[in-house]
Simulated scan of single mutants.
Amino acid sequence: MDYQLAIENAPKTIPAGTGILLIHPSTGETDRIDTDFFKTDTDQFLVISTRTTAREVTQKLEYYDVNEDRAEILDTLSVERGYSRRRRDDVSYVSAPDDIKGIIEETEKFLTENEGKLKLSLDSVTELAYYADVESALKTVDQITSLLKEHDAVGLFHLSKEVHDDDVLETFRERFLIIIELSEDGSVSVESKI
């Protein structure tokens, strides 16, 4: 099974099981790439948010006119920060951004319980590394990409280039067949190993 990919300069389609690394500047506007990724050829999608709350993710989806009926959100921030958590069928929570076990369990649950073309976004790997450590972030990426292959899904993984050393960036890059780089001026370049 292939997925259409409506991202500037990227391949038109990618095979199921593919993980995509999005390397961006800290101030980069990644929302457009994220939401274009979700809008195309998707039955259900999961946003794993280690950077913003479920409410902020919902606002982003509304702003970019993404079909929210297809969305599920994993909020990793609200519990730790003591924010109120509104009970919704499409939102789940884990205790903190470094709750790796909880993130993997919720990801597997989403992929197991839904059918069709499934996508997910981990926004962001950098925040995960900040709250846990780089090694834990790498292990999480490895576990999620294995789940993508197992369930014929695809995923987009956000990584901020200013925060990590070159060797850390390279270690992440080696794990992906498609690497999208967003520059400060908003231009997009894509490296595909497919």
Rank of each mutant, 00 (worst) to 15 (best):
A54D: 14
D31Q: 13
T145N: 05
D75R: 10
K12G: 02
L22P: 00
T42K: 03
G82H: 14
T107R: 01
Y64L: 14
H164I: 03
S160C: 03
I103M: 10
D34Q: 12
I144Y: 01
R32H: 13
L120R: 00
Q4W: 07
A71T: 06
S95R: 12
V79D: 13
V163L: 09
D152Q: 15
D185F: 05
A16N: 04
K39F: 03
E80C: 03
R86Y: 10
D65S: 15
D90G: 11
T145Q: 05
D2A: 00
A71F: 04
R88M: 14
R51W: 05
P15S: 12
Q143E: 12
Q143K: 10
L159F: 10
A54G: 11
D2Q: 05
D75L: 09
E113L: 08
D99P: 10
F38K: 03
F38E: 11
T27P: 00
F176K: 02
G116Y: 03
L147E: 04
V168F: 00
T35Q: 04
V125M: 05
D133G: 06
L46Q: 07
S136R: 14
V190P: 02
T50H: 06
D36S: 13
T145D: 02
I33Q: 01
L118V: 06
G82N: 14
I100Y: 02
S160T: 09
Q59Y: 07
I104C: 07
D152M: 05
D167V: 06
D41S: 02
T58W: 05
R175G: 06
D165A: 10
K39H: 07
V94K: 05
T50N: 13
I179R: 01
E162R: 12
T145G: 00
R86A: 13
V91Y: 01
T53C: 08
A132I: 07
T126L: 01
V190R: 07
E29C: 03
K119I: 05
R81D: 08
F172H: 10
S146L: 12
L22G: 01
D98R: 14
A10P: 07
R55A: 14
Y64N: 13
G186K: 08
K139S: 11
